[in-house]
């Protein structure tokens, strides 16, 4: 895995807003990150840590002040590929994407992206259907106006609009924010299905550590425009106390195990799913019985 070309790579990337004025802000400062193909990376960090800036860099909406953004090993700013092509290969779903809906029907709105790429009608139709399927939109909902839908349905329609371009890399900024637990599950589950079906690479910006623990396999933590932690879930949560100190949240269950470790009941803290917690507790109880 380590030998193959990563789907997306940031090499010494810095972004400076308001260059050479008194308002100069370094949103990102020399970021080096690799996102391996078909991995799911959860991106965490406080407000203003550079998460959204990082998202805008992935598909060329923003040009890095320094450094390179490489898509399958090629600099996206090298002019070898048109921006249109880059953006069809890197799908970006903004925070609260509902506001991007505009067309008469949900179906036409989802078709907007594929149409812009210049696909033929048959292919467009096929992609719209597939995308709607991943996002759990029914045939009936496709024929309705996007403005008649409920909040959750709007969110799904907007995400389907990006999925319909069938991007190889998919970047999502808080796709489940403000939804009820069932809605979260449906959207994140659908995205996971999409990833499996197309071997896509996912970058998931989220504040919910539970979602991160459940749906991602890698973590990238940003702090003041710099990478503060990165690695696989196991690697990162093994240092859960470190994350706690860096004022980053950890899943509830991990908090519990940090407390258990402090009381010398259980030694490891790389517990981030309830499943794993159950195993650990059972082991501890068994050991206690044996002793």
């Amino acid at each position: 895995m380590s030998q193959s070309i990563p789907a997306l790579e940031f090499s010494k990337v810095s972004v400076v807003y308001g260059d050479k004025t008194s308002f100069e802000v370094r949103a990102l400062d020399g970021i080096n990150v690799k996102f391996p193909e078909s991995s799911v990376t959860g991106i965490i960090g406080h407000t203003g840590s550079g998460k959204s800036t990082l998202a805008m860099l992935t598909n060329g909406l923003l040009k890095p002040t320094e450094g390179q953004v490489l898509l399958f090993g090629e600099d996206i700013w090298s002019k070898k590929h048109s921006m249109k092509e880059i953006r069809s290969r890197v799908g970006l779903v903004f925070q609260y994407p509902e506001y991007q809906l505009f067309d008469e029907t949900v179906e036409a709105d989802i078709a907007f992206g594929p149409k812009n790429i210049g696909l033929d009608p048959e292919e467009i139709n096929k992609r719209v259907m597939t995308a709607a399927d991943f996002c759990g939109l029914s045939e009936k909902e496709l024929k309705r106006s996007p403005f008649e839908l409920s909040g959750g349905q709007k969110r799904r329609a907007a995400i389907a609009g990006v999925l319909a371009m069938q991007p190889k890399v998919l970047v999502l900024d808080e796709p489940a924010a403000g939804l009820d637990p069932k809605g979260r599950e449906e959207i994140l589950g659908g995205l996971d299905e999409y990833r499996r079906a197309y071997g896509a690479t996912l970058l998931l910006i989220s504040h919910s550590m539970e979602d991160i623990a459940k749906y991602t396999d890698r973590i990238l933590a940003l702090k003041n425009g710099k990478v503060c932690l990165q690695g696989t879930l196991d690697e990162v949560f093994a240092k859960a106390e470190l994350m706690f100190d860096a004022k980053l949240d950890v899943p509830q269950i991990t908090k519990l195990f940090i407390e258990l470790k402090k009381r010398s009941i259980c030694a490891s803290t790389d517990v981030y799913t309830v499943e794993r917690a159950k195993q650990m507790v059972e082991t501890v109880i068994r050991e206690a019985k044996n002793a």
């Binding site: 598909n59 069809s88 812009n116």
Partner: peptide
């Protein structure tokens, strides 16, 4: 930005 991300020109 959002429409550009959907390849709008």
């Amino acid at each position: 930005s959002a429409q550009k991300a959907r390849c709008a020109d």
